[in-house]
C-alpha cells in the first residue's frame, strides 16, 4: 500500500515496513528527493538524495535521476548494480551539466529481515535497535563526480521487530536556530531514541516538531528531507523502545 499524502510527504506500508518521508524545500522547488519503491510482495527499495543547487534546475535533475532509478529497479538488479547504472547514466548527465547528486539506497527483504544499504556521497542511515544505535559504514563518491561508482561494498543489517531506520539530508542536521547553532545529528539521535515506540508517521511528526521548535520555524538555507522506516511489530508484540523511560 502506498499513500501519497500530497505536497512533499509520502507514506508506505510494505514488506513489513512502515515508511514515512517528507521533504521541505528551502526554495520553491528543491533538489532533495526520496522515494519508496515496492518490489513484489516482500521487498522495498528506499532512496534519498540531494542534487546540487536549488530551484527548477536542481528539481529537473532530481526528477531525471528518479526516473532512471525506477527504470533500474524494474530490472531485478542488486543494489550495487543499481547504483552502478545510476552512476553510469544519471551520473554522466549530471557531470555534463556541471552538477552532482548524493544518494543513499536501501533495500529491505522481508524473507531474511535483511536491510542492505549503499551510499554515494550521502550521510549513512542511522539504525535504532532497542538501546543500540548503529550507523553503517557505507561511503562512496557522489554521482556525477566520477565516470563510475566508487565506494564501499553494501552493508547488510538484520532488523528486529520495532527497529527504526532514519535517513536524512544534510539540510536537517544543519538547520540553524536564532543563534546560528546547528540542529545536529546528536539531537536527532536523542529525539529518535526517546520515541522508537511510535509508528513511523508519529515519529516523523515528533522529529519535525522538535526541529521547528529548535529553528523557531526560520527559513533555512537548505532543503530538509527526512525518511523514517520502522519494522512492524508482530501481532501482539511489545515495543522494546525507550519511550516514557
Amino acid at each position: 500500500m502506498s499513500l501519497d499524502t500530497g505536497g512533499n510527504g509520502k507514506q508506505i506500508i510494505h514488506a513489513g515496513i512502515q515508511g514515512a518521508g517528507c521533504s521541505i524545500p528551502a526554495d520553491l522547488e528543491g533538489g532533495d528527493f526520496f522515494d519508496f519503491i515496492p518490489l513484489g510482495e516482500d521487498q522495498l527499495i528506499v532512496a534519498i538524495g540531494d542534487v546540487m543547487g536549488k530551484g527548477m534546475r536542481a528539481a529537473g535533475q532530481m526528477k531525471e535521476l528518479c526516473t532512471i532509478l525506477h527504470a533500474c529497479t524494474r530490472k531485478d538488479l542488486s543494489l550495487l548494480e543499481i547504483i552502478n547504472q545510476l552512476a553510469a547514466i544519471g551520473g554522466k548527465q549530471l557531470h555534463r551539466a556541471g552538477s552532482f547528486a548524493t544518494l543513499c539506497l536501501i533495500s529491505y527483504e522481508r524473507q531474511h529481515n535483511c536491510l542492505t544499504c549503499l551510499s554515494a556521497g550521502h550521510p549513512s542511515p542511522v539504525i535504532f535497535s532497542g538501546r543500540n544505535i548503529h550507523v553503517p559504514r557505507v561511503r562512496g563518491v557522489a554521482l556525477g563526480f566520477l565516470e563510475e561508482y566508487q565506494g564501499t561494498r553494501p552493508e547488510q543489517v538484520v532488523l528486529s521487530c520495532g527497529d527504526v531506520v532514519i535517513l536524512y539530508t544534510d539540510g536537517l542536521v544543519e538547520a540553524r536556530d536564532a543563534n546560528g547553532q546547528n540542529y545536529g545529528l546528536n539531537r536527532l539521535k536523542e529525539i529518535v531514541a526517546a520515541n522508537t515506540c511510535l509508528d513511523a508517521v508519529e515519529l516523523q511528526e515528533v522529529i519535525l516538531n522538535d526541529l521547528f521548535t529548535f529553528t523557531g520555524c526560520r527559513q533555512q538555507r537548505d532543503d530538509v528531507t527526512l525518511v523514517i522506516l520502522k519494522k512492524e511489530l508482530e501481532k501482539g508484540g511489545e515495543c522494546h523502545g525507550n519511550q516514557g523511560e
Binding site: F100, T102, A120, G121, H122, P123, R139, G140, V141, A142, F145, L146, Q150, G151, D170
Partner: peptide, 14 residues
C-alpha cells in the same frame, strides 16, 4: 566533514 561524505577529496586525488 561534509566534503569527506560526498567524496570531494577522493575526486581531487584523481
Amino acid at each position: 566533514h561534509d566534503l569527506e561524505i560526498i567524496g570531494f577529496f577522493r575526486v581531487l586525488e584523481t
